[in-house]
């Protein structure tokens, strides 16, 4: 929405949906899903896609280039701060961008972030001039520390990567959003459209997802659904929801209502 731009790392976007490319059944489906999602920023795992493949006819990077979607390199698959820093630097050299989505994973079973390595890598990369967008646990304290070391956003997980379990701890999300001075982006866990809408209603600045779309039975339809969900959730957040009440409150006016004459049925 033009009157409500999404500013991330100094760049302004219209779409608040960040997409990932992992898990798509084919390049063609991926391309149509990206178009349907309306995304303007898409992450690419630097360990799975070589920038050397950029020139090859029909590669992931050439599709993004053709669609005019910005590439956000990520450090998926890194287990130590050292690896993540190295991967980010390789991505900067290869793609000419100093924005990086930082992921440092603790183990393969849960794919949860390793908070200590993450903070360490974030600090190093910020000092090195990177715009760092860290994938983090839904921990308000860690989120604050990441912000303190100079991260340009925080990207807490709703639930583990690929699990589709939605936002398991909405209260933590609220705490993170309330205290953050940088954009908070839901990263991981969205399984369907309502998860994305809920994140936006909680005040997230954006939603990042991949599997929910790429592994859906009809990825292109789900991508369109997610686009609407993010927009709907954002509008609802800006509008301000009504307070929850225990009892009903009639929405139709009762003043001046017609009195029915039992002698003369209305219908």
């Amino acid at each position: 929405m033009a009157d409500d731009p999404f500013v991330l790392g100094g760049t302004s976007f219209t779409s608040r949906l960040i997409m990932g490319t992992g898990g798509a059944p084919s390049l063609d489906v991926l391309e149509r899903s990206l178009v349907a999602s309306g995304t303007e920023l898409t992450t690419v795992a630097m360990r799975r896609v070589s920038p050397g493949a950029q020139g090859s006819h029909g590669s992931v990077l050439s599709v993004l280039d053709r669609l005019g979607i910005r590439v956000l390199p990520n450090t998926a698959g890194c287990f130590t701060a050292g690896e993540a820093v190295l991967t980010a630097r390789l991505a900067r050299d290869a793609l000419g961008t100093d924005v990086v989505k930082l992921e440092v994973i603790a183990d393969e079973r849960t794919l949860l972030p390793d908070p200590i390595e993450l903070l360490d890598a974030a600090e190093t990369l910020v000092d090195d001039g990177f715009t760092v967008l860290p994938y983090t646990n839904d921990d308000p304290v860690l989120a604050r520390k990441l912000e303190d070391v100079g991260c340009a956003a925080v990207m807490p997980l709703g639930s583990p990567i690929g699990s589709g379990l939605g936002i398991r701890n909405p209260h933590n999300f609220q705490l993170i959003v309330e205290h953050a001075r940088v954009p908070v982006i839901l990263d991981a866990g969205a399984g369907t459209a309502s998860d994305a809408a809920f994140a936006m209603e909680l005040g997230c600045a954006g939603v990042m997802l991949a599997s929910a779309v790429t592994r859906a039975q009809e990825p292109v339809l789900m991508a369109e659904g997610m686009r609407h969900a993010v927009e709907a959730g954002r509008l609802a957040y800006r509008a301000g929801r009504i307070p929850r009440r225990h009892f009903a409150e009639a929405s139709s006016p009762v003043d001046g209502i017609a009195r029915l004459d039992p002698e003369r049925p209305a219908f």
Binding site: R48, S50, V60
Partner: peptide, 17 residues
């Protein structure tokens, strides 16, 4: 049948590597 066991396969987008 000749005793060979083939285990595969990764799927990587890395150009002509």
């Amino acid at each position: 049948e000749n005793g060979e066991l083939v285990v595969g396969a990764t799927s990587e987008e890395l150009g002509w590597d």
